[in-house]
Computed example of a mutant assay.
Amino acid sequence: MEIRELRLLEEFHQAYELFDDIWRPDPRNVPMPVELMIAFAHAGGYVAGAYEGERLVGASVGFLAADRTLHSHVTGAVAGHGAGHALKLHQREWCLRRGLERITWTFDPLVRRNARFNLVKLGARPEEYLERFYGVMADAINGNDESDRLLAVWRLDRPAGTAAEVAYPSVLADSGGRPVIKPVEEPAVLVATPPDIEAMRRHDPQTAREWRLATRETLGGLMAAGARVTGFTADGEYVVERD
């Protein structure tokens, strides 16, 4: 696999088509227009693709932000190629060469595989819960769900994490596929995630909404009160510690 910055008009169009294939968005809600990719690349931002031969299997677009930071706005990859991880490592080296100290991005707290990738494989940590951050997103992945997001912060001197092995009480638990909030006052708690929220949005949107609201109340409420997310368990739970 070759990771390289995109420079040519046809490459930006390839990235646009890749994102379109992944998200299948409403035409008014595309993840990243071609003209913005061109502008970010020209202005010194990060626009890169992962190629297997001539085929683009992943792409990522980010822009420079305050405090020596790259904000990675959108990354999409074809499953099964390792392109997402390869792009993140390329992003890290790109930032280090420019004296940047961290990479930020947003992700849906309900998508378990993304939480595991971000917290365990990379060692990033969520530092803010963003309620309805993008409004309603009309695409095949988000399914018109409200777009609560976690702001992930990857400090580039931080090593990759490991799945946390803890026995803390659950403030949000999975009971037969439904979320159950429990009154817990301990200093460290667990917040569960559903195994596959994307499938749930398609087949059981009411339960998917229950998970959204329960996660907003528990994880969002804890973080708003100053609690820190310190890990992610092998069973798909956020580890949250109160100060």
Score class of each variant (00 low, 15 high):
93 E>G: 06
21 D>E: 14
5 E>P: 03
12 F>W: 03
94 W>M: 13
243 D>N: 11
218 T>F: 09
98 R>Y: 13
188 A>Y: 02
162 T>H: 13
21 D>K: 01
239 V>R: 00
197 I>W: 02
47 V>H: 08
181 I>A: 10
227 A>K: 11
78 V>H: 04
188 A>W: 05
233 T>C: 13
113 R>M: 02
174 D>A: 02
22 I>Q: 02
179 P>R: 07
236 G>K: 08
37 M>C: 05
92 R>K: 12
177 G>M: 01
238 Y>V: 12
200 M>Q: 14
145 D>Q: 12
162 T>N: 07
93 E>F: 05
83 A>Y: 06
130 L>T: 11
55 R>W: 01
177 G>W: 09
239 V>C: 10
45 G>T: 12
119 L>N: 01
187 P>W: 10
36 L>P: 01
75 T>R: 06
240 V>C: 03
71 H>Y: 15
104 T>S: 08
182 K>N: 11
158 R>L: 08
166 V>H: 05
153 V>S: 09
134 Y>F: 15
24 R>A: 08
91 Q>C: 05
35 E>V: 00
10 E>N: 15
7 R>H: 15
87 L>K: 12
95 C>A: 08
148 D>H: 14
119 L>C: 10
78 V>E: 04
135 G>T: 04
240 V>W: 07
90 H>T: 05
26 D>Y: 03
141 I>F: 03
120 V>G: 00
113 R>Q: 13
92 R>W: 08
27 P>H: 14
43 A>G: 05
237 E>W: 02
228 R>N: 10
109 P>R: 03
236 G>L: 02
168 Y>A: 11
71 H>W: 09
174 D>P: 00
61 V>L: 10
22 I>M: 02
7 R>V: 15
95 C>Y: 13
214 A>K: 06
81 H>G: 05
161 G>L: 11
27 P>D: 05
233 T>I: 06
117 F>T: 04
210 E>Q: 13
230 T>Y: 10
217 E>W: 12
133 F>D: 04
94 W>T: 14
179 P>Q: 08
109 P>L: 07
172 L>M: 04
58 G>S: 08
8 L>Q: 14
132 R>K: 14
163 A>V: 07
53 G>P: 05
211 W>F: 03
110 L>R: 07
226 G>F: 10
82 G>E: 10
58 G>R: 06
158 R>F: 07
207 T>W: 00
97 R>I: 02
49 G>P: 01
28 R>E: 10
14 Q>M: 15
152 A>H: 06
225 A>G: 13
235 D>P: 00
102 R>F: 03
178 R>V: 06
65 A>S: 14
153 V>H: 01
86 A>Y: 09
125 R>W: 04
234 A>S: 15
185 E>T: 15
63 F>S: 08
82 G>V: 09
21 D>P: 01
15 A>R: 03
83 A>N: 12
88 K>L: 06
218 T>Y: 11
186 E>W: 09
89 L>D: 12
33 P>C: 09
37 M>T: 07
209 R>Y: 09
127 E>M: 03
42 H>D: 15
26 D>L: 03
30 V>Y: 01
161 G>M: 14
20 D>E: 15
8 L>P: 00
119 L>R: 01
39 A>N: 02
